[in-house]
Design a protein around this nucleic acid. Structure first.
Lengths: 259, 259
DNA sequence: CGAGCGTTTGAAATCGGTCAACAGCAGTGG
DNA sequence: CCACTGCTGTTGACCGATTTCAAACGCTCG
């Protein structure tokens, strides 16, 4: 089950010119947000290599000393905690443009395992260099703070889900959250393929995989979604939002009184 | 139920000399960790006022624009999320020396409500000034990053608890967590008074208050703790650690082979 | 094509939730 | 000082959502 870390790309020739934030399509979601072109050029130098991961490979593991934070370029990862008795909790699923490894900063060693759900690639950002550059570029510092804070907020919403919602509501919220994050990156957001198993979804949501499966079937039966294995099509967004206990933000505008 | 924010101390005379980190006993847990005395002197200038809160007062509320982050001087707070339908999830309980308001950075407005559980006082740290000073003092920047990351880690452990542990284990973990945090601050850690109701503990742990009450009674009956209303005395730490599914760190040394 | 997962579905069991009654204690006001 | 009121906490009995156990199905990949 546990694979070892793989640094496929470590051997030579890594400081390639093409590892540049300035030309990366994810720039608008990643570290360089709000920087001038000149400053983005300086951020380029932070990304001295990229790591290519196969499904199941670890990006980092609990206890590894912190050396870098990572920005996902393509693919998807999960982060997880394990208990001594073997139980396991998935903390997050991570999409392109998101930063990984922030859990390692507090104690100078990573607190989680970060594992690829599919073929993925991450930019390696030496953390000390990042702090150094953030010290020189205030906008970079601010952006980094925003990213950490949003990560906090994401986990806090997740806490709300695990602490206060029923299985059905959690799963609806999960689908919506995925859809929103995909849309923000310009991906198709009403139809996508889940890269993780029912068991992993269950772990993330604090329920058993059989329950996930049952809820999916129920959603499909009531016409909220269509399912073909891991491929999901969201049919009735309003219904999903309602189930998740949130108002559909798309309708807020229409309800609001115009000024 | 909902009280309005109270800025008792806002009226004049607030820039007192005694608002100094340099002389604050919490310095070793707070922002100034790792700074030279000279730099701590510069941090003093960040704390331009303190807020005094009575039980039930809000330090900040969901949606308020971010202006400051806070460091708790004495007392205790809870942070919480609310759902449109009235359900509520307590995200954290906060002790002296801990920072509040980090949830507000990502979107420039606070995402949670922060409410005093008792008479409390918080240092008000203008966030833009903090970023400015962190820009000048690398150690301050690093310490701030560590604080944010630890906050993240704390929430992630909480996720593990809500997602993977049974009620009994969650409550044992809660008591241990409290004990550890009190000990870190030099407080008595095997005997303390909980500032929050059974209902608030339940909300934090994702269980109902009746369950909290039952589990407490069970713990007391099996000799793990002693209870008098909200006053708790931890009797059998090993038993609690075992219940919480963690090894007692105090015994790790004795088990480890000496080098 | 067959082995091994991952998934679905059903039936039984259980943990925690819900409902309800009551006890304890704090604050109020006579 | 002692009802009275209201809130918090405890405990019991019953209920129900989710888990557990089990069986069968169907991808996927070697």
């Amino acid at each position: 089950m546990v694979r070892h870390r793989v640094y496929r790309n470590r051997i030579g020739g890594m400081k390639e010119l093409k590892n540049k934030c300035s030309t990366c399509v994810l720039g608008q979601f990643c570290l360089p947000v709000g920087l001038s072109p000149a400053d983005i050029g300086r951020v380029d130098s932070l990304v001295d290599k990229r790591l290519h991961l196969k499904k199941g490979d670890s990006l980092y593991r609990h206890g590894d000393p912190l050396s870098a934070v990572y920005s996902l370029r393509f693919g998807s990862l999960k982060t997880e905690h394990t208990l001594p008795d073997g139980r396991l909790q998935i903390i997050g699923f991570h999409l392109p443009g998101e930063m990984l490894g922030l859990d390692g900063i507090g104690e100078s060693q990573y607190q989680l395992n970060a594992i690829a759900l599919e073929e993925s690639e991450a930019c390696v950002i030496d953390f000390h260099e990042l702090e150094g550059l953030a010290h020189q570029i205030p906008n970079l510092q601010q952006q980094f703070h925003r990213i950490m804070s949003r990560e906090l907020t994401q986990d806090q919403r997740h806490l709300l889900s695990l602490g206060s919602l029923r299985a059905e509501e959690r799963l609806a919220g999960f689908l919506i959250n995925f859809s929103v994050r995909l849309a923000a990156r310009g991906y198709l957001n009403n139809e996508f393929t889940l890269r993780m198993s029912r068991e992993e979804i269950g772990s993330y949501l604090g329920i058993k995989f059989e329950t996930v499966s049952r809820m999916f079937s129920r959603f499909a039966e009531s016409g909220l979604i269509q399912l073909q294995q891991r491929h999901v099509k969201l049919i009735d967004m309003d219904g999903l939002y309602e189930l998740a206990g949130q108002p559909n933000p798309l309708h807020l505008n229409t309800i609001k009184t115009p000024c």
